[in-house]
Design a protein around this nucleic acid. Sequence first.
RNA 1: AGGGGAAUGAUGCAAUGGCUAGCCUGGCGGUCUCCAAAACCGUUCAUCUGGGUUCGAAUCCCAGUUCCCCUG
Length: 309
Amino acid sequence: MRKKELAIIAGPTAVGKSAVSVALAKSCGGEVISADSMQVYRHMDIGSAKIKPEEMEGVPHHLIDILDPADDFNVSIFADRADRAVKEIAARGSFPIICGGTGFYIQALLYGIDFADGETDPAIRKAIEEKTAGLETGALEERLEKYDPVSASLYHGNRKRLIRAMEYHELTGELLSEKNARERDREPVYEAGYYVLYMPREILYRRIEERVDLMMEEGLVDEVKNLIKLGIKRDMTSMQGLGYRQILDHLNGVYDLETAVSEIKKQTRHFAKRQMTWFRREKNVKWIDVTGFASPEETASYIAGEING
RNA sequence: AGGGGAAUGAUGCAAUGGCUAGCCUGGCGGUCUCCAAAACCGUUCAUCUGGGUUCGAAUCCCAGUUCCCCUG
């Protein structure tokens, strides 16, 4: 009998999570839930490195292609839907495998972080943004400091987060720092096997660059052109995705294609580094150097061994 | 070979006699509880070498070294 309720296959971008997840699912009768902020969007296949239908090898995948690029998506939506998926999968006697690189999302799901209704309101946020548009970030910080000095110093220089703290206060009357302090010491709500796949930095970076070149060959530019046709706007959540932003900027004449490609590579390297940072501080994770295994199947079989104890 | 120019961190620049040599990019580290593939923070590394002038030199002078351009 398994000693885990679910498995989490995490790690930086391009490390090979998808293949391992599929192999694991096949070996233990599982289903994959994607924890990825971009693969939820339809029409965004190449740039998000979305798993192809044939690569799924019959394994059911959840939270992929569930939204249009114009739709909003965030942790709260993810946590709700992923949690529901986990329960459904378990209910049908199947094994849930969370696969993805968005550490924040995984955290929200694993710890059951409470994103209650009424804690956010895009309209309020927008209003605050507009009201403070003329202010320097430092002035914004001073303003928040008056009632929530903890958040003000934590979000030093970070306009987006300062505004979020103000939004939260305006909506709930409570301080964001108080809520965070309260939510921080949660225990996991699932008995999970949390595995972070990694490989030496140089190898990972090389893979990232090769993958970006491949995306270009596969037609990333056309994919973005199609998104434009669908009415995509640069400030949409989906257009925060690496690759999409840069190609969009290129098409808008901000820089040439060559620059766009090297920007994508660079930003993706940085992203991978931040992902590693995130997982490093996550508790109770098992790090797995995938270069120690000959294939995704072998990595998966090692993980299966861990899960089944 | 002759003439001219340039040498500042891993990279591209700034400082033209005077704060502790500044900034960009990269590298590395970190933050994060509703835009997270986002947003933000920190840190590392340099005046080519040797003399000289000066209270004081990246900056001026001399020599050397390397590189670039022009002439042949």
